[in-house]
């Protein structure tokens, strides 16, 4: 564990807390994409299957459970909790996440898994676990897309939503620093290029949004993404 990873994890937790508070206090889900958070829930559920098979550390297990529970509760609030669910703007949340996120990621994960030959010689269960892990890496990188597309439709983005995007972006950016750190200071640390590629892609998506967000803030005007 290094300082970049710890800060990255904390940034991730903080972004989730920001969103949970926003939902609980404002009792309002407008401008928030349910689809993005359902994708994140799917990401955590497919990545953390090792919760049942391998113990790494108390920190590791607690964080995994915290991510799953907090994301599940976000999904629950937007979907079912009254009065929040009545403020969810379903008509605007239209990104076709099955066709353009889950499907392609599943295909990509299957291809990488078999081409890399990582799972050969291991049991079917381990292979499925590996496949799901790879899928979750791909899916996480683009899970924010429904949210970004939803925000494009809104004339103004709340500070809180801006903060959420900022902390989510910092989380992945800090993970990149963590990988660089580990490469230098951990002998035998093996590169995982799929995770690197997805990590950079993910960071760029957030950075791009945040760039336009800050520009419009500085001008003090209304915020809208270029279409």
């Amino acid at each position: 564990m290094n300082v970049f990873r710890l800060c990255g994890d904390m940034s991730h937790v903080f972004s989730i807390v920001v969103l949970l508070l926003r939902l609980r206090v404002a009792k309002n889900a407008s401008g928030i994409s349910l689809r993005t958070h359902e994708l994140f829930l799917l990401v955590f559920l497919t990545r953390y299957t090792d919760l049942f098979t391998t113990y790494y550390s108390l920190y590791n297990s607690c964080m995994k459970i915290a991510y799953i529970l907090s994301t599940a509760s976000i999904v629950y609030m937007i979907r079912l909790s009254d009065p929040i669910c009545t403020t969810y703007d379903k008509a605007q949340d239209t990104f076709r996440h099955w066709a353009f996120a889950v499907g392609p990621c599943a295909v990509l994960a299957t291809l990488t898994h078999f081409i890399s030959g990582e799972g050969s010689g291991y049991s079917l269960f381990v292979n499925i676990q590996e496949l799901l892990w790879t899928f979750s890496i791909y899916l996480e990188s683009i899970a924010i897309l429904p949210q970004l597309i939803l925000l494009q439709r809104y004339r103004e983005v709340e500070n809180l939503t801006g903060n959420y995007i900022f902390f989510m972006g910092s989380y992945r950016a800090l993970y990149i620093l963590n990988w660089i750190y580990r490469t230098y200071y951990e002998p035998g640390y093996r590169h995982h290029y799929v995770a690197y590629f997805c990590g950079v892609l993910q960071t760029l998506l957030y950075a791009d949004f945040f760039y336009y967000y800050m520009q419009s803030k500085r001008r003090g005007g209304r915020f809208s993404l270029p279409t």
Binding site: M1, T54, Y56, G119, E130, H192, A195
Partner: peptide, 10 residues
């Protein structure tokens, strides 16, 4: 295995 290499990351 991939999961062994980045096992301690979230």
């Amino acid at each position: 295995l991939v999961m062994d290499e980045v096992k301690d990351e979230l």
